[in-house]
């Protein structure tokens, strides 16, 4: 056996182990789309939240965000839920298509269930916490909690898909934590985390994994 052949064999083994145990069908383009949705949503919601200045939310003299009219809160929550549903649907449909194109496994089996479970446990916990705080009229931390728990959900999922997703998770986590310590830039951090970071990560992800898989 040639040296080259042995290297190739070891590569094949590594590939097969990864392909069979990790979910590799997530499409980079869908991550970019999720980022774009988030940008659009953030831009749409910003004027609703506070006039036309998009960089920060309005505060009263006690440091509370001024969006505690029931109608606005309902709109914000509804748009967040819609945004999540649209993003999730996009990623799922595009992953299904990529799996079909590249003959990758895509079935709701034990592995997929484990991945979704590990993703949704932190996410649902964070979502409920946000909801509870909103219902008690504590709005200040909503954006940081969303970013932090989404980051933790991604980090928690790294063993079930490409491990690089943890870097997106770290990014969201850091932005969320920075957001905790600042008062006025909630909208800005949300836009950066869910919009810009997704787009950047999606581009890098496509460059790294798009070509390799197609080959």
């Amino acid at each position: 056996m040639e040296k080259k052949e042995i290297i190739q064999t070891l590569d094949d083994i590594r590939d097969m182990m990864a392909k069979s145990s990790r979910f590799q069908a997530i499409s980079g383009v869908s991550i970019i789309l999720v980022g774009l949705y988030a940008c659009v949503a953030a831009l749409l919601v910003a004027p609703v939240a506070r006039g036309w200045n998009c960089l920060s939310l309005p505060y009263d003299e006690y440091g509370n965000i001024l969006l505690n009219t029931p109608h606005l809160i309902r709109m914000m929550v509804l748009s967040a839920v819609l945004l999540f549903a649209l993003s999730f649907a996009t990623v799922t449909v595009m992953a299904w298509r990529k799996a079909k194109r590249l003959n990758l496994p895509f079935a709701f089996d034990k592995r997929m269930f484990q991945m979704l479970l590990n993703f949704f446990i932190p996410l649902v916990a964070g979502g409920l916490l946000c909801l509870a705080l909103i219902m008690q009229h504590h709005y200040g931390l909503t954006s940081s909690i969303m970013l932090i728990f989404y980051g933790l959900a991604l980090i928690n999922t790294q063993h079930y898909t490409y491990p690089v997703f943890r870097f997106l998770g770290y990014g969201e986590l850091i932005l969320g934590l920075l957001d905790c310590f600042t008062v006025q830039y909630a909208w800005f951090f949300w836009f950066l985390g869910f919009g810009v970071l997704h787009i950047l990560f999606g581009i890098l992800y496509t460059l790294r994994f798009g070509k390799k898989q197609a080959a």
Binding site: T9, D12, I13, M16, M17, A18, S20, S21, R111
Partner: peptide, 10 residues
Amino acid sequence: LGIMSVLVAN
């Protein structure tokens, strides 16, 4: 070898 790779990883 491929079969074993899958079964060892999963």
